[in-house]
């Protein structure tokens, strides 16, 4: 099947001072696939995602979104295309949960207009799917960490964009809600041809949900491609410096990675 190229990244370099966070990174993202980016802390995952949403600009190299240089898009235009679930956040003001999720519709609502019935419907549906409906009138400041994270996820889903970027958005959540959300996200990929790029810490979650996997280390892509090809013990050892065994598991219908005590390299 001929898939549209969503992102074309060529030789991007980004430095924090003297530290080369991204070192001539090149890759291609195709439409309608669930990409997982894995790598140790400091490998450049978050920086890379920042460049994709135009939060930062590369020092050299190009990023093309849908064939055009990403610099040609204004932030407002890009907000209708790409949504971000950030890693951490704190909100100091007592907005209600519903108000926060409704903020996800901001790029679609003209400046002085009120939300339309369509906007409100989308918000309600997402809150119901994510099971946060029951506290929609509660203040965001009163929620637990995991509950807040779900609200932030709902906000990004309400943005209803063709591309969704997750920066470790599930670290604080109970496994029940983590699976619930990743299922919703995977449905979006399958049914709406959404493109998802997720930075994940949990290799097995990545294995269960992702179509493609990108291994990053020291600002470069070590290996990338179809998960069946790329998820192997050698790559895990190269990137994470641990021994592992990888086998196909019937229950999860995917490869799974297992570790052993006392086996760090």
């Amino acid at each position: 099947m001929d898939r549209k190229t969503v992102f074309k990244v060529r030789d991007i370099v980004f430095c924090y001072g003297k530290n080369r966070a991204l070192d001539n990174l090149s890759l291609t993202i195709e439409q309608g696939k669930f990409y997982g980016i894995v790598g140790p802390n400091g490998c450049g995952k978050t920086t890379f995602l920042d460049l994709l949403i135009q939060n930062k600009a590369p020092e050299s190299g190009t990023i093309k979104y849908l064939g055009r240089d990403i610099k040609e898009y204004t932030r407002r235009k890009l907000a209708k295309e790409i949504a971000l679930v950030p890693q951490d956040f704190y909100i100091n003001f007592p907005f209600s949960v519903k108000e926060i999720v409704l903020m996800g519709r901001h790029p679609h609502i003209p400046r002085f207009a009120s939300p339309s019935t369509e906007d409100l419907k989308i918000v309600d549906e997402i809150m119901e799917k994510m099971e946060i409906n029951r506290f929609k009138d509660k203040y965001i400041t009163e929620l637990s960490g995991g509950e807040k994270q779900r609200v932030v996820f709902a906000r990004a889903l309400a943005q209803d964009t063709p591309v969704l970027i997750l920066d470790e958005g599930t670290s604080n959540m109970d496994i029940q809600y983590t699976l619930n959300i990743l299922d919703i996200v995977a449905d979006g990929v399958r049914l709406k041809k959404r493109t998802v790029i997720a930075a994940l810490h949990n290799l097995n979650l990545a294995a269960a949900y992702c179509d493609e996997l990108i291994f990053m280390k020291s600002g470069r892509m070590v290996s990338g491609g179809n998960i069946d090809d790329v998820l192997n013990e050698q790559n895990v050892k190269d990137v994470f410096k641990v021994e592992s065994r990888i086998y196909f598991d019937r229950y999860s219908n995917s490869k799974q990675v297992v570790f052993k005590r006392g086996a760090s390299v």
């Binding site: 135009q54 939060n55 971000l84 950030p86 956040f89 003001f93 926060i100 906000r155």
Partner: peptide
């Protein structure tokens, strides 16, 4: 008042507000 809505969204933090299109 013109920027009131933008200010609301900026309480989500710069990264989120930026991803929602706010400069």
């Amino acid at each position: 008042i013109f920027f009131a809505r933008d200010l609301n969204i900026m309480s989500l933090g710069d990264r989120s507000a930026g991803s929602l299109g706010i400069e």
